[in-house]
């Protein structure tokens, strides 16, 4: 049996803060729908559905990162590279909604907290890192692979700090530890989980970029044009 996924359960964060983040998640997703609609064409409809289904599948695969501690891919970086940040955040949100409603994984009351951390923060951080790295790294065959690994590590760590903020605002139990200690504990395990996520993301996007570069948002929209490469190299 796979372990329960890395989603916040009901009751960990109090209801007011859960409601606040439900509003933030809805506002963020509204923006994603407005912006994502412009990038959506007929060919991308099944591709975006596949990205969501694939992230659901890989989220079932918990891997061990420390003795007694596991983790799984969150998918923000993968989604951002394949279908862009707006449609990508919607993909991850769809996975989180399916998990909470059908698999009872992640609290229904906590859905806004989880969407904010994993779909909004995770995808935004992953996208910004990939976009920056593809601009500054030399343009080689391995560029997208390296960018995927680094962006995944940062994305998962940023998402984990979203929980720290939510716990600071509305944690139901005072565990008597400093916020810094909790932030460090979350960052430590999630750095390792992010490395695992980086390997899976890099393998997947490198393969898709090889066989169907036209279906990879980062290749279509982010790689510098070959013309400018000839000038700089």
């Amino acid at each position: 049996m796979p372990a329960v996924a890395m989603h916040i359960s009901n009751g960990i964060i109090d209801n007011q803060v859960a409601l606040l983040f439900a509003a933030i998640a809805l506002a963020g997703l509204g923006l994603c729908f407005v912006q994502g609609r412009r990038e959506l064409d007929d060919r991308l409809v099944p591709m975006a559905g596949l990205v969501a289904a694939f992230i659901f599948a890989v989220q079932m695969l918990n891997f061990q990162v420390l003795p007694g501690v596991s983790g799984h891919l969150l998918g923000g970086t993968l989604a951002a590279i394949l279908v862009g940040p707006y449609l990508g955040a919607i993909c991850v949100s769809i996975v989180l909604v399916v998990q909470a409603l059908i698999f009872s994984d992640g609290g229904v009351t906590a859905l806004g907290l989880n969407v904010t951390n994993m779909a909004l923060l995770g995808t935004a951080a992953g996208y910004l890192l990939v976009a920056t790295l593809l601009r500054v790294l030399p343009r080689r065959a391995w560029t997208l692979t390296v960018a995927a690994v680094i962006a995944s590590v940062v994305s998962v760590t940023v998402a984990s700090q979203g929980f720290v903020l939510q716990y600071y605002l509305g944690g139901a139990v005072d565990v008597g530890r400093s916020l810094g200690a909790i932030a460090a504990a979350m960052a430590g395990t999630h750095l390792l989980i992010g490395l695992g996520e980086g390997v899976i993301t890099a393998l997947t996007v490198t393969y898709v970029a090889k066989v169907r570069p036209d279906l990879v948002y980062a290749v279509r929209n982010l790689k510098r044009p070959v013309v400018s490469e000839a000038v700089t190299v």
């Binding site: 372990a3 996924a5 890989v58 079932m60 984990s160």
Partner: peptide, 20 residues
């Protein structure tokens, strides 16, 4: 992945669970 490989997944508490 979801139908077969999922049976080989680790059942240890995950990153968030272990902190919780």
């Amino acid at each position: 992945l979801a139908g077969v490989v999922s049976n080989f997944a680790s059942s240890h508490p995950d990153g968030l669970d272990s902190v919780a």
